[in-house]
Design a binder for these strands. Structure first.
Length: 621
RNA sequence: GCGCCUGUAGCUCAGCUGGAUAGAGCGUCGGCCUCCGGAGCCGAAGGCCGGGGGUUCAAAUCCCCCCAGGCGCUCCA
């Protein structure tokens, strides 16, 4: 519909002498009113103070020879088009695999996941990674260049804490870590909670943590080595967890490398030169380099460099953002970190010998971070702008989403205390559901369902199917809520395979596969499809044809839930169609062929959409 | 105090850059396998769209006020 609307819009704009902005379309709530509505009479009439209804009539009378339009009818101020269904259907069917969204110029850098490498990933991290991954998939489906990065803060307090716990509290030197029976990141999950309790009451532990932190930042000594190993081990486990959900990356960037490369030093100079920051000589921030931020009419100083000369988190983020935008004059070296089964290569930045690569230098940088970081992201963007990089600042995009909390029911079932409606996830307190545990539980349930339905399959085959179902269930669950909505994570809902879920989409596509297979087995032949008038058919064709528009809107609004909802409603519409109109069992060859073609049209959209959501389709389920 | 977000069916949520009759899933109740896969389909019950005012031909949607809740605003990351 997107390509068609473009053509139609151009023609209308010529016929009515309207600017493209005044030619806006919408869909009637009911296809009996028309297939497409033109809203120009509202827009122009309102602006020029004309009678909307008579303007609509005037416009309608001038609209002639429109492509694929059979009739133009006005309904009050609405100008409705009834399309030539036979022509439109053929056009949609023949081009069903094309995506007609205009790709934008330049590279997109999508940074997501970014989990502190000191403990297991939890369901909150899953939301981040799934949104980031699906958004990157969408950009590449519409034909844009995408690079996915995962930034790892291997020099932060969180890593220092667990280094302290392992070395000082557990007496486990790095050589002993591989011998820990439990999965290492899960072990650290519990340990981190112990460490946090220790830190609260033990000043000497705090002192030691400071020393560890300093060593991590300087990159020297045994503490630093332990920190590096910890971060590396845990990050690798996170990668495994994400791979279970089909999430892959192109590059790992390590905070310690950013420090060594000296990106900050250069940025610090620039910030001073351009007067973006100034040294505060009085007040509570005396001795610090600060940036003046105005918000709600209040002037605030944001500390960028502490009075002891060290850079704050935002400071480093500004420097790193500059690198992503190609505004740094130095670059990392790179080497391959691992090769995915898909063949995709995951690179890592490195301090040792490595290749020169073309990472970064993006036209648009999407930072996928929860909305709590909104203020800091705003400062980073503002700093880039004040450095004189207006265009790059515009390309610095915060893909924000709300956090994940645990539902009362889920939290209580795991033995956490519940006082309100929901419980915030807290790594420090150990409150949360580990991503691996969730994946394991969903797989277990899926395997039970598969066994019930397909006892004839081998255990191995059943497990493989269960993995795909589990991944689809989790991914869909993480994407069905709008970014602005706090996800009250409920394990029972997430485990569900019925209704608005990932498995529902899979089931629909598996059913289509099955129909196709039966078609071959029975040797049913098909004719080239010819349209026959039927409102139910048309509704499905019309709905499937809006796919491109949905992708366009998702890219614009960075709102994956739109796609999830759309695909669900399309699948639902197909299932209604399927229940009412047999395909293979239809005796009339013309009718049968048409129904099959409609299925193919819907299938093409569902498949592409499922790919974007990261949902794989098993042969059977 | 300042900023961002949220309040829609019993529950979880769509719809919000104004448009035609406010939707979905779950749950509840009742139906549907002689037939392409019942993880499905059909039907029913269920709504002062937090409250009040305003703008408009038109408001769940935009503006203002109020109420309720979440998050952020550290020389933490």
């Amino acid at each position: 519909m997107l390509g068609f609307k473009r053509k139609l819009g151009e023609k209308i704009s010529r016929l009515l002498s309207l600017s493209p902005e005044d030619v806006r379309f919408d869909y009637p709530p009911n296809l009996s009113l028309g297939d497409l509505s033109l809203l120009s009479a509202f827009i122009v009439g309102k602006r020029e103070g004309k009678n909307l209804v008579s303007l609509a009539r005037e416009y309608a009378s001038k609209l002639e020879d429109l492509p694929m339009v059979e009739r133009v009818v006005t309904a009050g101020p609405f100008i409705n088009f009834k399309l030539k269904r036979d022509e439109f259907f053929l056009y949609a069917w023949e081009s069903r695999d094309e995506v007609k969204v205009f790709p934008r110029e330049g590279k997109n850098l999508v940074e997501h996941t970014n989990i502190n490498p000191n403990k297991a990933a939890h369901v909150g991290h899953l939301r981040n990674a799934v949104i980031g991954d699906s958004f990157s998939r969408l950009l590449s489906v519409v034909g844009e260049v995408v690079e996915v990065q995962n930034y790892i803060d291997d020099t932060g307090v969180q890593v220092a804490d667990v280094v302290y716990g392992l070395l000082k509290m557990k007496g486990l030197p790095p050589e002993a870590w591989d011998g820990i029976g439990e999965k290492f990141d899960h072990f650290c999950w519990d340990l981190y909670v112990e460490v946090e309790r220790e830190m609260e009451t033990n000043p000497s532990a705090q002192q030691e943590r400071k020393r560890i932190l300093k060593a991590l930042e300087e990159g020297e000594g045994s503490y630093s080595e332990a920190g590096r190993k910890l971060a590396h081990k845990i990050a690798s486990l996170h990668l495994q967890t994400m791979e279970n959900l089909g999430i892959e990356y192109d590059l790992l960037t390590w905070e310690s490398h950013i420090i060594s490369l000296g990106l900050w030093a250069r940025t610090f100079e620039l910030l001073r030169e351009k007067g973006v920051i100034r040294k505060a000589d009085k007040g509570p921030n005396a001795g610090c380099w600060v940036m003046d931020i105005e918000e709600g009419g209040q002037l605030r100083e944001k500390v960028i460099v502490r009075s002891n000369g060290t850079a704050t988190y935002v400071a480093k983020d500004i420097a790193y953002q500059m690198w992503k935008l190609g505004l740094q004059d130095r670059d990392f070296k790179y080497r391959v970190f691992k090769k995915y089964p898909s063949g995709r290569l995951l690179y890592t930045t490195t301090l040792e010998d490595g290749e020169d690569m073309d990472f970064g230098r993006a036209a648009r940088v999407y930072n996928v971070i929860d909305s709590r970081q909104g203020y800091l992201q705003k400062i980073v963007k503002e700093a880039v702008r004040r450095l004189g990089f207006e265009k790059e600042a515009e390309g610095s995009i915060h893909l924000a989403y709300e956090m994940v909390a645990l539902s009362k029911r889920s939290a209580a079932s795991m033995g956490f205390e519940v006082d309100g409606e929901a419980v915030s996830i807290s790594g420090r307190k150990g409150v949360g559901i580990k991503a691996d545990d969730l994946i394991g539980e969903v797989r277990k349930r899926a395997a039970q369902e598969v066994e019930k339905r397909h006892p004839e399959l081998s255990l191995e085959d059943r497990e493989a199917i269960a993995e795909k179902i589990a991944s689809a269930a989790i991914r869909y669950y993480m994407l069905k809520f709008t970014n602005n909505s706090v996800v009250i994570f409920d394990i029972e809902d997430a485990l569900s395979f019925e209704g608005e879920t990932g498995p529902y989409l899979q089931y629909t596509l598996v059913r289509m596969n099955s129909i196709r297979r039966k078609l071959r087995e029975r040797g049913v032949s098909l004719l080239s499809p010819r349209w026959r008038e039927n409102d139910d058919y048309w509704d499905l064709v019309h709905r499937a044809s809006r796919f491109d528009e949905v992708l366009d809107k998702v890219r614009e609004n960075m709102e994956l839930s739109l796609l999830a909802k759309y695909l669900f409603s399309l699948a639902q519409a197909f299932n209604v169609f399927y229940a009412k109109y047999p395909i293979l069992n239809e005796a009339d060859p013309g009718e049968r062929s048409l129904r099959f073609a409609i299925m193919e049209l819907v299938e093409a959209k569902l498949k592409k959409g499922a790919y974007i959501l990261g949902i794989e389709i098993p042969e059977r389920m």
